[in-house]
Structures are given as structure tokens and as C-alpha cells.
């Protein structure tokens, strides 16, 4: 029998929750799906050794829903991957997010794991991050008497480090509804056909007009220390005519950008060439689909 050996609180509403978070002298962590936290706690992971209090947010309805309000899609922080995968709004407007979350872990995991839980600890292999980045996701962070909005990109600071303050909670993910003409794709490479940690993830969104990229957004995961958008490549690409040379060129640029960030490490021997190949394939698929 395993015991987590810490205190647990189960606030019923946001107010109670924020009060708990505001208590300074407790080392607390939010418990949502628990798929990362419980494992970490059992395995004695450094991230959780000092955790004295778990604040279970599962009872708070407001954090657990998907809405389309005006031109924004709002995903509650404790919405599970399964709920996202099967949601109409997401299916219609955010197909890359659907594809990404449907490839995470097993069904049992997706039935529990939550969207915010996927990125709050900023692990490089969080599969929801590249799609959220290309969808320009913003986060609402709340704390007692305070509320702020921050882009996901700025939120993700460094590996295993975010902008989240101790008394704060990610309450929602806010995504502007993408333009109807936007197309794109998500790519994941794992070692096994299912339930595999990502080796490489890529997300691309673009609008193709008169055989040129009118808008393009590119993000990767697992190949860089944190999930990342590639603005330089995006800017370079705009209004360029699409042909094979351009696609190759973009793929090389992606390789260069990643190399700049990571330098040559043990995994580069494999990941660098493969990420260029697969980015090239992904672009080809998108262009052909169009």
C-alpha cells in the first residue's frame, strides 16, 4: 500500500481554492488528473518531494468545460484529454489539438489527464504544446484578488520552469478561433505505435493563397528544451511561392534554428536530420492536401 504522505484539500469553488493557494507557508501543488503528480510522488521525483499539501481542483466545475464565446474558444484548465478529443467545438476549430491529445498516453490516461497538467510543469515532451502554440493560445492565471492573461509562449519560461507564481493557478486556456481557410497538421514520432513518449512533435498551421504561404505558424516539441514557435522562419516564409526548393529551404532553416538552441548533443545525431526530413514531409502533405 502506498501513501502519498501529505495533506489534501478539496475546495468546492474558485474562491476557496484561491484562499488555499494564498497561504504562504505551505508548499502546495495542484492536483487535477494526477497522472503526472501521483507517479512523481510515488517515484520520489524531485519536483514533489517538498510538497506538503495537494489542492484537488476536480470538484470545481468552472475549471472543467469547453466554451465558444464570441471568437474565442475557452478550455477550462482541468478539462481532460478525452473530453477535448471528443468535443465538437475542438473538432471543428482546433483539429491539430484534437490530433495531438488523442495520441497522448493510453485511453485510461486521457480519461484523467488534464490539458493544463500537460504543460504546467513545462516538460519538453508535452504534446499539447506545439498545437497550442500555433493556435496562439493564451492562459488566464488567477490568484487571490488578481487575474492576468499571458500567452502560453511567454508562460513557458525554461525547461521545467514557468511564469506561474506560487499563489497562482492556470484557470483557462483561451484560443482565438482560427480563420476558416487555415489548414495544417500535427506530427508525432514515438518509439512505439501507441502509448509512447514523443521523440519529436511538430505543428504547422498555414493559409495558402495563390500558391504562396500567406500566413504560416510553426512549432515543435521534444526536439528543443521547451516547446517553441519559429518566428524567423514564419516571417521568411510569408508570401513566398511554394515549390520544392522552398520546402527544403524551410526544413533546413528549422534544423538550423534547433541546432542554435540545442547545440550538438547526444540525441542530435538522430533528431536533427529526422526533424528536417519530417518537417519537409509534413509541409508536403499540407501543400498536397490543399
Amino acid at each position: 500500500m502506498i501513501n502519498l504522505n501529505c495533506k489534501i484539500e478539496t475546495p468546492k469553488n474558485i474562491d476557496e481554492l484561491l484562499k488555499l493557494l494564498a497561504v504562504e507557508n505551505f508548499n502546495s501543488k495542484i492536483l487535477a488528473g494526477g497522472t503526472d503528480l501521483i507517479v512523481g510522488k510515488i517515484q520520489g521525483s524531485k519536483r514533489f518531494v517538498d510538497t506538503e499539501l495537494l489542492i484537488d481542483i476536480n470538484k470545481i466545475e468552472e475549471l472543467h468545460k469547453i466554451d465558444l464565446i464570441d471568437d474565442k474558444i475557452i478550455i477550462g484548465a482541468s478539462t481532460t484529454f478525452s473530453e477535448i478529443e471528443n468535443n465538437k467545438i475542438i473538432n471543428e476549430h482546433l483539429p491539430l489539438l484534437k490530433k495531438a491529445v488523442s495520441k497522448i498516453g493510453s485511453l485510461q490516461i486521457r480519461n484523467r489527464a488534464t490539458i493544463a497538467g500537460n504543460f504546467v510543469n513545462n516538460a519538453p515532451c508535452a504534446d499539447s504544446v506545439p498545437p497550442l502554440l500555433v493556435y496562439n493560445a493564451e492562459l488566464e492565471l488567477i490568484s487571490f484578488g488578481n487575474k492576468r492573461t499571458i500567452s502560453l509562449e511567454n508562460f513557458l519560461e525554461a525547461p521545467y520552469k514557468t511564469q506561474l507564481q506560487k499563489s497562482e493557478l492556470v484557470s483557462k486556456i483561451i484560443i482565438p478561433v482560427p480563420d476558416k481557410n487555415i489548414i495544417g497538421d500535427f506530427y508525432k514520432l514515438g518509439r512505439r505505435r501507441a502509448v509512447a513518449i514523443s521523440r519529436i512533435t511538430l505543428a504547422v498551421l498555414c493559409r495558402i493563397e495563390n500558391n504562396s504561404f500567406d500566413d504560416i505558424r510553426i512549432a515543435s516539441g521534444a526536439v528543443t528544451p521547451i516547446g517553441k514557435r519559429f518566428y524567423e522562419i514564419e516571417n521568411f516564409t510569408r508570401e513566398k511561392r511554394i515549390n520544392n526548393d522552398l520546402l527544403i529551404n524551410l526544413s533546413q532553416m528549422l534544423g538550423e534554428e534547433i541546432l542554435k538552441i540545442t547545440g550538438l548533443r547526444w540525441s542530435s545525431a538522430y533528431k536533427l536530420p529526422v526533424v528536417q526530413q519530417m518537417f519537409y514531409q509534413l509541409l508536403n502533405n499540407i501543400v498536397i492536401k490543399k
Binding site: I8, L31, G33, G34, T35, I38, G105, S106, Q108, N111
Partner: peptide, 21 residues
């Protein structure tokens, strides 16, 4: 949460009982 031997159903959904309190 990797092997599924502990799977039970909670409110109609399959979950890993090793990852739920």
C-alpha cells in the same frame, strides 16, 4: 499508469486505479 492491469471503470470511463486517489 503504463500497464493497465489496474483498470477499473469510474463513471463509465476506464481509468488506472493506481493513478487515482
Amino acid at each position: 499508469g503504463e500497464c493497465g492491469a489496474c483498470t477499473v471503470i469510474v463513471d463509465g470511463k476506464a481509468i488506472n486505479s493506481c493513478l487515482m486517489l
